[in-house]
Design a protein around this nucleic acid. Sequence first.
DNA 1: CTGACTTTGTGCATCGCTTCACAAAGGCAC
DNA 2: GTGCCTTTGTGAAGCGATGCACAAAGTCAG
Lengths: 261, 261
Amino acid sequence: MVGDALRLSVPLEHWQVIRRIPQARERGIPDATVARLPLYLRALNGLAERGTATVSSEDLAVAAGVNSAKLRKDLSHLGSYGTRGVGYDVQYLIYQISRELGLTQDWAVAIVGVGNLGRALANYGGFVSRGFRVAGLFDADPAVVGERIAGLVVEHADVLESVIKKRGVSIVVIATPATAAQEVCDRVIAAGVTSILNFAPVVLTVPDGVDVRKVDLSIELQILAFHEQRKASGGPMMGDEWPDGVVVVSERGAPLGEASQ
Amino acid sequence: MVGDALRLSVPLEHWQVIRRIPQARERGIPDATVARLPLYLRALNGLAERGTATVSSEDLAVAAGVNSAKLRKDLSHLGSYGTRGVGYDVQYLIYQISRELGLTQDWAVAIVGVGNLGRALANYGGFVSRGFRVAGLFDADPAVVGERIAGLVVEHADVLESVIKKRGVSIVVIATPATAAQEVCDRVIAAGVTSILNFAPVVLTVPDGVDVRKVDLSIELQILAFHEQRKASGGPMMGDEWPDGVVVVSERGAPLGEASQ
DNA sequence: CTGACTTTGTGCATCGCTTCACAAAGGCAC
DNA sequence: GTGCCTTTGTGAAGCGATGCACAAAGTCAG
C-alpha cells in the first residue's frame, strides 16, 4: 500500500550513493530536528486524511508552522526522500518519519499518579492514537487504587516494579506531587525504565543513559507573563526601581507557598 | 513586610551604578535565559523555605539542574546582583527574578475547554501559587456549563469576549479539542488577548504581536520514543526495511550506537 | 592594612541551529 | 530528444547559546 511511491520515484541507485557518504543520517539527527518531526507527522496526517497524495516543502511547512528551508533540511537528515519538481509523497513520508521516531512499534506506557492530571492523561486520546498504549495506572492513595479509568484499574504503587517488568513498560509518565516524583523516578529506573516524561515541578536526578523530558505548566505561564509584561510596558521604564526605597522580598500574599503540586 | 536581607548585603550605591550602564538589561533578555528563570525561581524558593540566606552560583546551579557558568551568565542579564566572594542573597534574587518575569503583579487567566485537561489545570495549585489567578472557566457544552470547579462556575463560551474584557483577562489557556482551538484563539485575540497557552494539538495561526506557547503531550512522548528506540537498537539494525522487502536505507550494522542522548 | 581565599561577571572560542540562495534533479510539453 | 519550469537538497554565511577560563571584586583573618 505504502511503499510504491518510492520504487517509482527514487531509483535505488540514488541512495546507494547517499549511503556511501557518511553524512547526516549515519550519526544522530539533530535534537532540534527530532523535536519537529512529530509536528510534520501531524501535518502530514491531516493532509492524508484530506486525500492529498503529494505535498511540496512549502505547503507542508505552512501546515506545520515552520519555514520551508528548515523543513527541507530537517527531512534531509532522514534521507533523500522527495522528488524534485514534485514534492514529497505524503504516505511515504508518514511512514519514514514514523519509523525514524520509532512509532512503528508499540510502546507500553505507565502513568504514575492518578490525580487530576493523571486522569486527564489516561483519557487523552493522543496517546493511544499513535504507537503508545497505556499499560498501567498507579497511585499510592488507597482511595484511588481499584478505581477504573479509561478501561484500566488503578494499581497500588507498591507493585510498580513488577508490573513494569511483566508488561514491558519502557516509558513512564510521572504525574505525582512534587514530593513523590524523585522516589518514583528512582524506582522505575531501578526497574529498567530509561525514558521518563515528568510533569512534577522538580528537577529529577537520573543516571546517565536515562532520558527525562519535562512538561511544566507553570513555567510556560511564567514565560508568557514575561512577554506580556514587556508588551504592556511598551512605554519607557516600568517599575524598574525598588518599590519604595528598599523593600526586598515578595510583599505580595504569602511567602510564595510552592503549591506542592 | 519582609524585606531586610537586602539592606544588609547590597548597598544602594551598587545598583545605581548598574542602573546607569545601559548594558544587557536594557534590550531584551535572551529567550533561552527567560525560559530558565522560572527554574531558578523555583530552586530559590526551595532554598528560602529551608531558611538559606545566601547561595553561590555553583549550589544554585546544582539545585536548578544547570551548569554554573550558564547560571551566572543568565543572572548577569538581569543586572549585577550577587556579591563576589559570597554569592547571591536568596530573598533579593527571588524578588528580582519575580519582577523581571512580571510575577509581582497578578495575572488573570481564563481556561477555555473544561474537559479532563481543563479540570486538571483549574485545580492545578501551581497556577494560583505565583502571580496567576484563574478568573474564568469556559466551555461550549451545556452539560458542563454551570458546574462548579475549583471555586468557579463554568460559563458558556458565548460570553468569552465580554468576560475577558470585564475581568481584565490577559492570558488564555486553550484546552479544547483540536477542532475548536483556532476559533477560540481568533475570538480571544479579537477580545484583546495577546498571550495564549495552547494544549490543543494544532498549529494556531495568529497575527504578529500575539504570543503562543504550546504544550503538546503526545509530541513529548514521540521524542522520548525516538531516543528509546535509539537505545534499544544498540544491536545491529532493526526494521530498517521497507515492509515487503525493498531495502530502503542504511543497511549498515553498526554505527548508530552513539548514545545520542 | 595586608595578603590569602572565594566567587562573581564576562571576553572569547566554539558549537549547533537557522536562513539564504542556488545548482542539480526531475517532470512535462512539444 | 530539447528546453522550460518546478522543487529539492545543501554549501556557506549568519546568529545565538554554551562553556571555559580568568581578572576583578569582594570577604575575612590576623
